[in-house]
């Protein structure tokens, strides 16, 4: 079976400084892989490289058996890689001028969903994360947990095969953490999603992860 994510001998540099060095990683379809490492280990860079948002210097990345990046060349643009990304910082990256509904509708318009169907589909995605009643609110009017759920709905509306989670539990308190973890576990099971979750907190490893990778100073430990 083809791996959902295959990272081979990845090297990423920013301003001449190596952020990732010879990183290799395999995630099987439907797995929940947790990458643990301290701040500055290169976790976010790894996710951005997989999503196509960060150019590589060397190595290659395959998603579902398709090579998407090789060396300095990006073979598949970010929007066609079939990945969603939940950014670090709660609702960070949400578009401040759009309501929750408009945010999801925007994603649907990018997927060329017909205008007449966008509203009903958007509301379905929002219901899925229990944001239906807050569809008319903008990100600034949402709490941290609600904003995180909107970010999740936005990522899911693009129907990704792999969901990249950048410290998704960091800004949430204990009950919200448990709720989000349960929601992600359900989604993974229902939609056969592959999850690649990076965190600095070793306590998150045992939550639902099926595999664990340790990243430190830009290299995979062990």
């Amino acid at each position: 079976m083809k791996s959902a994510v295959l990272v081979h001998q990845l090297r990423v540099e920013v301003a001449g400084q190596p952020l990732l060095r010879q990183v290799s990683l395999t995630v099987e379809p439907g797995a929940w892989c947790v990458v643990v490492g301290p701040s500055g280990a290169g976790k976010t860079t790894l996710l951005r490289a997989i999503a196509g948002l960060q150019p590589l210097v060397a190595g290659y990345i395959e998603l579902d058996g398709v090579r998407v990046s090789e060396g300095r060349v990006s073979l598949v643009p970010p929007e066609r890689r079939g990945v969603g990304l939940l950014f670090q910082g709660g609702g960070a990256g949400l578009w401040p001028h759009m309501t929750a509904q408009a945010t999801v509708e925007f994603v649907l318009s990018c997927r060329h969903v017909r205008r007449a169907e966008r509203t009903s589909q958007a509301l379905r995605w929002l219901e899925l994360v229990e944001l239906g009643p807050l569809a008319a609110r903008r990100p600034g009017e949402l709490s941290g947990g609600e904003a995180q759920r909107l970010a999740l709905a936005r990522a899911l509306a693009a129907e990704p095969r792999t969901l990249l989670l950048d410290e998704p539990l960091g800004p949430l308190d204990a009950p919200l953490r448990a709720e989000l973890v349960q929601r992600l576990a359900d989604l993974r099971r229902q939609r056969q999603l592959t999850l690649l979750h990076v965190t600095h907190d070793p306590g998150e490893v045992g939550l639902h992860g099926t595999s664990v990778v340790r990243l430190d100073h830009g290299t995979v430990d062990g």
Partner: peptide, 15 residues
């Protein structure tokens, strides 16, 4: 930058 990246992921340059 995350807002821009999110748009890029869902719809490329046009988004």
């Amino acid at each position: 930058g995350r807002r821009v990246d999110a748009a890029r992921l869902v719809g490329g340059l046009w988004a």
